[in-house]
């Protein structure tokens, strides 16, 4: 009974700042420009299928790259001394103390024509464009969201009972078998919350693509932003579809792992 009372402020918070806005988006999404019930916003929203797919593709690609980079790092971290662990965690966190937009600006300058990367590679005889394409957008996303993948995996991994690993070794498992049969299955909750924390924001962001992408790298967040100027209904419909897509993705993830890992 006592715990219920304590949760009241959170319930009110969620009601006011999560549930009511979602319901309002839901209502707006079914209105036409004169305020009558209509499915037109959804018809219009489906005109942006290509952008939806592209956004989800970019988000998926960024998430996978983050996972591939973060998993070994998290594993290595657990094997380190406490002091080195702290140093590396600190180094991962420091960039996040800076404003998101500033960091993207920095990448813009690094990648631009006659920028540091271009100059260095030109000296080696390699000429190319490194900005204004999907690759640059994925790079920006990976850079932005990598810590959100490393930290949950590391937290879960460092809680694995050392006794289990020793037991596996005593029973004749080599290093790879220990990783495959003990550490990986036990780290899945961390992997799932890492994927969630990277995939969800990267599917809906648009700043990265606006600054690092070219004309073909428009993301769904950008469409919502622009459409909202004059047409709230279609904007809401697109937002609703995006929310449903992300929800479906999370449910699918849920099937693979522990329920509690879903953020």
């Amino acid at each position: 009974m006592k715990s219920k009372k304590l949760s009241i402020p959170y319930i009110i918070w969620m009601l006011v700042f999560t549930m009511i806005p979602i319901v309002m988006i839901g209502i707006t999404a079914f209105k036409d420009s004169h305020g009558n019930f209509s499915l037109e916003p959804f018809m219009k929203a489906f005109g942006y299928t290509g952008v939806f797919l592209k956004s989800l593709w970019i988000a998926l690609l960024s998430t996978l790259i983050c996972l591939v980079l973060a998993y070994p790092l998290a594993y290595l971290l657990t094997r380190m001394k406490k002091s080195s662990q702290n140093t590396i965690q600190m180094l991962l966190m420091i960039p996040m103390w800076m404003n998101f937009l500033l960091r993207i600006y920095a990448w813009m300058i690094l990648l631009q024509k006659n920028g540091p990367l271009d100059t260095a590679l030109s000296l080696l005889g390699i000429h190319g464009t490194y900005i204004g394409n999907t690759g640059a957008v994925v790079l920006g996303m990976v850079y932005e969201y990598l810590p959100f993948m490393v930290l949950p995996i590391f937290t879960v991994m460092s809680k694995i009972d050392g006794g289990l690993i020793e037991a596996a070794q005593d029973l004749g498992s080599n290093g790879f078998a220990v990783l495959r049969k003990v550490i990986f299955p036990l780290s899945i909750p961390g992997v799932i919350s890492g994927i969630t924390m990277v995939f969800v924001p990267s599917a809906s962001t648009f700043l990265v693509s606006q600054y690092l992408g070219g004309t073909d790298d428009i993301m769904i967040g950008d469409v919502i932003d622009k459409i909202f100027w004059t047409d709230q209904s279609t904007g809401s419909a697109i937002s609703l579809i995006l929310m449903i897509l992300i929800f479906v993705f999370l449910v699918l993830m849920n099937l693979f792992g522990d329920e509690e890992a879903i953020a």
Binding site: S33, K44, G47, Y48, G50, V51, T215, I218, D222, V223, K226, I227, W229, T230, D231, T234
Partner: peptide, 18 residues
Amino acid sequence: DDEVYAYMQEKFVEVQAN
């Protein structure tokens, strides 16, 4: 006109999205 402007906005997003 409001409607023309909303249409303009929609069409401009279409240019960028496709």
